[in-house]
């Protein structure tokens, strides 16, 4: 296959990421034309900061969708770990740095993730149902057993970590400044690790294989149960990291304000071209899709559209985005009668 301009273009137009990228570009340009503020340094920094927590959640949701499942428990999981960690450290009057809170959160997150993995991996129950159940359980544990209230004080180590600026961007016109938080590095590190894992490790390829066909993956020698359990542990850890970052950046532990994020996150992942049936999708697309959702949620004001219209746009975006990719599939199957549509091959 020679990679001249034409075939490259052909290759690009086949890929969903390309279209998401075009939509993203169009949206950015539209906002820039309307407001002249989009490409200002402080707005870009603001968007990058707003991307940290949804981005981490999206990585977790992406892994689960690739493996053929769907996870709706990550906001509850993150809220529970975040709250439990903060509460524990406050009660102990912890004054140290941010390492211990992160470590505790990761351990709790891993345990809760293993809980998900146990039911999904060993009992082979449908992911949507299990995570619905566990998200209910996590919420109950947090609000019932821990009797959660909004904590307006968080340990100083966490606060410092969440507010330390990597650099400060200034808008030359309005003089507004925005801080680029150091937590961005945590996000980028996770992103890089997951990228390498998915691309170069047997475990990562196993996740794709399971999503494509569980039976085939098993026949090919993948340990399906172990891969799934480890994956859910990882997803739990990523989600709890997002939770602790959220609390640190907001400088308070609000038990419920992460709940309800799951639908938008999943929407972003799927907009990026990840097949909801599993087995197909790229991390690049997932990030582009999430960025699209984040920009829509944060930049409506710059467009002069009242924030009450936000959900309308998100809804249209989901329908159009998934509709286009579904339609592409139909056309592809019609023109190239090689592969049959893999409808109903859901785990």
């Amino acid at each position: 296959m020679n990679v001249d301009g034409r075939s490259l273009l052909k290759k690009l137009t086949r890929r969903n990421e390309f279209y998401v990228f075009l939509v993203l570009l169009a949206l950015c340009l539209l906002i820039e034309i309307r407001s002249g503020q989009f490409f200002s340094p402080n707005n870009l920094v603001d968007i990058a900061s707003a991307m940290i927590v949804p981005g981490l959640f999206a990585i977790g949701a992406f892994l689960v969708i690739i493996s053929g499942g769907i996870d709706v428990s990550f906001p509850a999981l993150a809220s529970l770990t975040m709250y439990a960690t903060t509460k524990m450290l406050l009660d102990a009057n912890y004054q140290g740095g941010a390492t211990l809170p992160i470590a505790i959160a990761l351990v709790i997150g891993a345990l809760l993730g293993a809980f998900n993995g146990l039911f999904i991996g060993y009992f082979k129950l449908p992911t949507l149902i299990v995570t619905l159940g566990t998200s209910s359980v996590f919420k109950g544990l947090m609000q019932g057993a821990l009797n959660s209230k909004q904590l307006t004080i968080i340990p100083p180590g966490m606060r410092k970590w969440g507010t330390t600026a990597l650099f400060i961007a200034r808008n030359p016109v309005s003089g507004l400044t925005s801080r680029m938080y150091i937590t961005l590095i945590a996000f980028l590190v996770v992103l890089a690790l997951v990228f390498v894992m998915l691309r170069f490790t047997m475990f990562g390829r196993g996740i794709y294989a399971i999503g494509g066909s569980e039976v085939s993956a098993h026949r090919a020698g993948f340990n399906v149960i172990r891969t799934k359990v480890i994956m859910y542990v990882l997803v739990g850890m990523i989600a709890s990291l997002a939770g602790i970052i959220r609390a640190s950046m907001m400088q308070q532990a609000h038990p419920t304000n992460m709940l309800g994020m799951e639908m938008n996150i999943i929407a972003g992942v799927v907009l990026g071209g990840t097949a909801i049936t599993g087995g197909r999708g790229t991390l690049t697309g997932c990030m582009l899709g999430t960025l699209l959702i984040v920009i829509v949620e944060n930049s409506m004001i710059l467009l002069g559209i009242p924030t009450s219209w936000r959900s309308v746009f998100t809804g249209v975006l989901i329908i159009v985005g998934t509709g286009v990719s579904a339609y592409q599939m139909i056309v592809m199957n019609r023109t190239k009668r090689v592969r049959r549509p893999k409808k109903g091959v859901k785990a």
Partner: peptide, 26 residues
């Protein structure tokens, strides 16, 4: 359009809620 039901209805649900928000301002 062969959109997977979970996505189609998630999108339309978001859309309906959005219309509600837009016409009532919450």
């Amino acid at each position: 359009f062969h959109i997977p039901p979970i996505l189609a209805t998630m999108g339309s649900g978001e859309l309906f809620t959005g219309i509600c928000m837009a016409i009532t301002n919450g």
